[in-house]
Structure formats: structure tokens, C-alpha cells
Amino acid sequence: MARPQEFNTAEALYKAMGVFWSKGYEGTSLADLLEATGLSKSSLYATFGDKRDLFLAAFDCYRAERTRELHLVLDNGKARKSIETFFRKIIEDARATTFSHGCMSTNQAVELAPHDPDVRRRVETDFQVIEDAFARTIQRGQAEGSIRSPVSPRKLARLLVVAFPGFQVMVRAGANAARLDDALATLLSNLDLPSK
């Protein structure tokens, strides 16, 4: 008879996600994962497979959580304000100690995506999900009048997606608040009618 599992799989996965998120894939050792999860080597391998399998499961956990948060922010209230809130949240989260390691998808776009097709597909999917969410929000904003730009929602969404990792990188690089506020105001001005 098999021994019953004595740990919470979801909790262990969440803890592993935190390690991969803060240290990256290459920077995370097996010892880091065992310490964070509190699992033995045999339990870790039996439950999640090897380090790469665990990383992909943890990355997928992160991605699902972030997608829920994305929709929570963008699907509520006036569209233009929702988009501004989304970017202000990125800036605040990047400044917070807990989130100082940035967006895991952006990090992996640089670390593993260039040479790992499985990670590349996930990163591409993540940016497409963000683009689609922005496009829907912009379309809603144009219909309700909070976004007055006549530019197509898809084109505006692509601009916002390009800005998304840029803000995270600038915050992590220590850009001051005035510079970020100015950049955000300029970015959001693309949602208004062009000045004559």
C-alpha cells in the first residue's frame, strides 16, 4: 500500500514558483527548491518530475494567477481608467519588495525563451493574452467614450504591450517617479483624440 502524501502539492508548487521567480531558472538550485518547499528530493521528483518539469508547472501557475489579475483590473470600470490602473499597478508592484523581481514572463522572455521552445510558446501566449485583453478594453472604451482615439483597438493594444515590459525594466533599473509618470502620461495620450 502506497504511503499517503503528507504535503500540499499546490502550496509546494507556489513556493517553488517564488524561488524560480526571484532567482530565475538557471540561478535556482535543487537545494533552493528543497529548502523552499520543505520536500525531500524523492518527494519533489515523485510529485513534479525534474527541475525543468517543476519550473514549467510553477511558471504555468504564475501565468494563470497573473491572467486572473489582468482581467480583474481591465474588465472593471471605465476602460481608460482601467488601463491606467493596470500600468500604475505594474509600477507599484515593481517597486514593492515582494515583487522586486519583476514579471516572470518578461524575465523568461530574456532568460529561457531565446533557446527553449516550450518557454517561448508560453511567453508568446502571455503577451498575446495581454494584447487581446487590451484590445477588448480599448474597444469597450471607444464604445463608452472614455477612449477617444480613432486608431484601431488592436494597434493601440500592441503599443501598450510593448510598453508593459519597458515600465517594469525601468522601475527595476531605478527610474524616478517623475520620469515614469511622464512616460505613462505620454503613453496614455495615445488613447485620446489627436491634437490639432
Rank of each mutant, 00 (worst) to 15 (best):
Y25I: 04
A133H: 03
A113F: 06
V129K: 10
G174F: 11
F20T: 04
H71E: 08
I90H: 09
L44W: 05
K41H: 13
F20I: 00
N190D: 01
Q168R: 11
M104I: 04
R172S: 05
D132S: 15
L184E: 05
R3A: 15
Q139R: 13
Y14D: 04
E26S: 05
D32M: 08
L74S: 07
D181I: 01
A58P: 08
R66F: 06
L33M: 07
A57L: 08
I83L: 00
V19Q: 02
A64T: 11
K78Y: 11
K81T: 12
R3I: 14
T47S: 06
A178M: 07
S146D: 01
R140D: 03
N107L: 00
S146I: 04
F127H: 14
K78P: 11
S152M: 13
L56F: 01
F59C: 03
G24H: 09
E111M: 07
S195V: 13
E26L: 02
L72F: 10
V110S: 10
K41T: 09
K155D: 14
E84D: 13
F167Y: 02
Q142F: 04
E65A: 15
F7K: 02
A10H: 10
R88L: 13
S195R: 15
A94K: 11
L70M: 12
Q139V: 06
E92M: 14
K81D: 08
L112D: 06
Q168E: 15
